[in-house]
């Protein structure tokens, strides 16, 4: 194991991926812009061209109207269609508004033949009650029917996506943020809840949206140490060691949970796991230069050795992380 690890640590690695479809396609061929918006009965407000994020989270609107403009360059149409189809493009422009949290998709379909100019303007009307969090607005160009005769190198099937745009993000609610980006820690009376084992000091609950570390509030003497703020003296030293003891287990569990929850494509069961992985993986794979490749290596290692194989590696890592040995030495010094 140790030998393998050393070998791995010496290895420098760079990975890149690219995706292709088997037909002519312009990924960013369309240009999308939100021109202006209106909240409720308020005035129409213009938006600077090129805006990619529109933050409305400070407004408690009920209704929202957006004027969106999409440009479909003729060159793109020509590129994605065989010559035979260019005179009457069997394409539709879709302006799509998607809200992942509410699974809402609002689609405006504009047959390309109705488009006299290169640009299309669309007004989108939205209700706050159908949105939460973030909304993405984008455009795609898709075939509306199968090609009579498939031309090699060109998309022939109905609904084929032949061009797309960048997306514009609309923030309806402020991004969910943990307090200062730190773990949530709460005092609870362990004796008053059967959920907690008698005689325990803390408990981490991490299989949920936000991991929470519960600490027993029953013993005032213990709280006195935990809540102390001093930097010197025996109490401060004792506090550090207690924090270390808690910290080792908590980090180990956060790491293990995040390792178990990660997918190759970077999606995690819970959002916080991503943050934890971004912290952990550079330490676990110091020679891999980007997150994607580290993540991939993680998944490969997990497939090879199972979750247990990480425990040994993390044991040393969490100890150095919490600086346990430094803190124990500081106590020893304090005791003379």
């Amino acid at each position: 194991m140790a030998e393998v690890r050393r070998k791995r640590a010496r290895r420098g690695r760079t990975v890149r991926r690219a995706r292709f479809v088997p037909f002519r396609h312009r990924d960013r061929g369309l240009a999308i812009d939100v021109l202006r918006f209106e909240l409720d009965d308020g005035p129409s407000r213009d938006i600077a061209s090129g805006t990619t994020t529109l933050d409305l989270s400070a407004h408690r609107f009920r209704r929202l109207s957006l004027d969106v403009e999409v440009r479909v360059p003729r060159t793109v149409v020509s590129y994605v269609l065989p010559e035979t189809e260019r005179s009457a493009p069997p394409l539709a422009l879709l302006v799509v508004l998607a809200c992942p949290s509410t699974r809402l998709r609002r689609v405006r379909r504009i047959p390309l033949e109705t488009l006299a100019e290169e640009t299309a303007s669309v007004r989108l009307e939205l209700l706050r009650s159908e949105l939460r969090g973030e909304v993405e607005i984008s455009a795609v160009l898709a075939r509306i029917r199968n090609a009579a005769i498939a031309a090699p190198g060109y998309a022939a099937h109905a609904a084929a996506k032949v061009a797309g745009s960048a997306s514009i993000d609309l923030l309806v609610d402020p991004p969910v943020r943990r307090a200062g980006g730190y773990l949530e820690i709460r005092y609870e009376s362990f004796s008053k809840s059967p959920s907690f084992e008698p005689g325990t000091l803390y408990r981490l609950d991490c299989e949920t949206d936000t991991p929470i570390l519960f600490i027993d509030a029953d013993d005032a003497a213990v709280r006195q140490i935990l809540d102390s703020r001093g930097r010197r003296g025996l109490v401060a030293r004792a506090r550090e060691v207690v924090f270390d003891a808690i910290g080792q287990v908590v980090w180990l569990r956060l790491y293990m949970s995040a390792i178990a929850g990660a997918d190759e494509d970077g999606t995690c069961a819970y959002g916080w796991q991503d943050g934890v992985l971004r912290r952990l993986l550079p330490k676990l794979y110091p020679d891999l230069s980007d997150h994607a490749s580290r993540l991939e290596q993680l998944c490969a290692d997990r497939a090879d050795g199972g979750l247990e194989s990480f425990v040994e590696r993390l044991e040393a890592l969490v100890q150095t992380e919490v600086r346990l040995s430094d803190h124990v030495r500081a106590v020893a010094k304090e005791l003379g």
Partner: peptide, 9 residues
């Protein structure tokens, strides 16, 4: 002070 030891976010 304990919270600050877990910058998970």
């Amino acid at each position: 002070l304990l919270r600050r030891r877990f910058p998970v976010g």
